[in-house]
Design a protein around this nucleic acid. Sequence first.
RNA 1: GCCGGUGUAGCUCAGCGGUAGAGCACCCGAUUCGUAAUCGGGCGGCCGACGGUUCGAUCCCGUCCACCGGCUCCA
Length: 647
Amino acid sequence: MSGSVRVTLPDGSAREVPAGTTPRQIAEGIGPGLARAALAARVDGAVRDLDRPLENDASLALLTDRDPEALEVLRHSSAHILATAVRELFPGAGIGFGPPIEDGFYYDFQVDRPFTPEDLERIEGKMAEVARRDFPFVRDVVDRAEANRRFADDPLKLERIAELGDEETITVYTDGPFQDLCRGPHVPSTGRLKHFKLLHAAGAYWRGDERRQMLQRIYGTAWFKKEDLEAYLHRLEEARRRDHRVLGRQLDLFSISDIVGPGLVLWHPKGATIKWLLSRAVEDDNVASGYDLVYTPNVTREELFYISGHLPLYAANQYPPMGAGAGESEDVRYMVKPMNCPMHALIYRGQQRSYRDLPIRLSEVANVYRNEKSGTLHGLLRVRGLSMDDAHIFCTMDQVEDEIFLCLDQVDRLVRKTFGFELDFEISTRPEERLGGDEVWDRAEAVLRRALERKQIPFRIDAGGGAFYGPKIDIKFRDAIGRMWQGPTIQLDFNLPERFELEYTGPDNKPHRPVMIHRAIYGTLERFTGNLIEHFAGAFPVWLAPEQVRVIPISDAQAGAARGLAARLKAAGLRAHVDDRNETLNYRIRDGEIHKVPYMAVVGQREAESDSLALRVRGAGKKQEVMEVEAFIARVGAEVREKAIAP
RNA sequence: GCCGGUGUAGCUCAGCGGUAGAGCACCCGAUUCGUAAUCGGGCGGCCGACGGUUCGAUCCCGUCCACCGGCUCCA
């Protein structure tokens, strides 16, 4: 271990140091401030411990609390500190994994009983103590025998050790009384953890496998700055405030009744208005884009799903079959449909198709029912009765790219432009088990890729994430508070055309097999509406607002004028209501604000006499504008036509 | 489906081994008001369901159902 190494710093400067010098020593050489601030180092692109010696020439960046990678390291270390605390308080606790995650960290423990909220408080206190004692994180390289010896009492760790390849370096990190099998890196010492909070405990399967034992997971969050922690907790609060289940009740949009059943939505008039407007928006766009509308039944003989191949594979997600129709043999059984594609395939097959007919695009906003596991249901975001804005495109392989363009354009109009969502694209490629030869997959994946590239849309690849019947493009969108949601999906399908023996006659007068594209823009109207409720915090754009204008007479003397105004607004196509309840003006204004009505038209004596209204815009407070009725109608009408996001 | 928590009036929540209370909402009355809660009165609950313990259960125990937080899954 002799000689020197050349270390290049981010500013381009380089220095020669003896081999074995640590990043910390280099930081000290640069200045005491940096040495104090440094948390980890990036060596040739990889994040490493500050005290890990440099053995070769390398580029080096010292990471401080300003670097996102450092925050990830801090959270990873936080997980260890959490485990340190748990081991102090629960000496027999087995340890699973404890990684950093978005906004925080977790650690999985094997304990005799689940953690209670009181336990979390104690653990949090103990973590603060571990941090105060400022134990250094020490990295040891050990051989397999040593690792097995050190974790002899930790079966979960032994399992992990056994999986490590012989060529892999096994490292153990120790902080004070706690040691963990871990690749690292970590912050220099536990004292770096200052602003953190344990959030909750929950069960989690070991290795994420539902057949294996359930461990107890503790989630926490950690930040470098107090303000960041507070901002994050505030964000959680904000998310709670926007919870579509809460707003759905407050705004009287929908309910889910125990008597009807979990996951089955009762759309109240206001929520139904939104759902109706959304389905109309997508249907209008479908028709304008060259789709045909179809309707198909909610129940079908189960045979259909044997042909499609959903049965028996998909049986767990379908409601069990029901008896035959009156007068039919008892052997015939029916099922509620969980998807529409087989029926659309049958419509395609209903007649001989020529290559000249293609593409054929069939669309349907349809109710389907899926028997989702009870624990997965969640308000509108995960339901059992779904309204899919579904469509199936039958086309030749050569037409796929254009059809993908068509779908992407719809997504752009209906999701990005209309709601201002930022989109995130991902292509899922062939899985291990799949249908169709490699040439077909090569071609299909290339088409998806090329379509996005030509649209200059950046995308990620989820290798192996495709369905067995074809690759797909999944599109996520980011809402107002930065959360990502699964949105549109475009899937190629080589399977159903096979199973239904779909054909078209080509220019060569021979039968050919079409490709099928499944595509949903909003996905399901339940989930999308739920997303919109949270995105807008219930304050919908005028075109979607169930109540667009609330007309408020100042006193009973203007009640007649108010009703007249509301009638005019309705005649102009606006959804307007009068609030002439025997309550104070303040009360009614407040009620309108709470119910997120975009416009309140206040009518006092002055307005009643001048064919005008005093406009109060949602969220704008007292700032009001007196305007003529016709001008108001023109303004709101334009906003509705343009699907403006304001006010 | 699994782990934990929760279930009291339409909603939000107190209460707790001796068969229930507040605020809001709703109804009635007074008030007629210029931009985020006027005052008074009233109605309203097999305390999630079913079993058990007990002289007595909303309260303790068990089972089930639903919801919440996660896991798994997913539009």
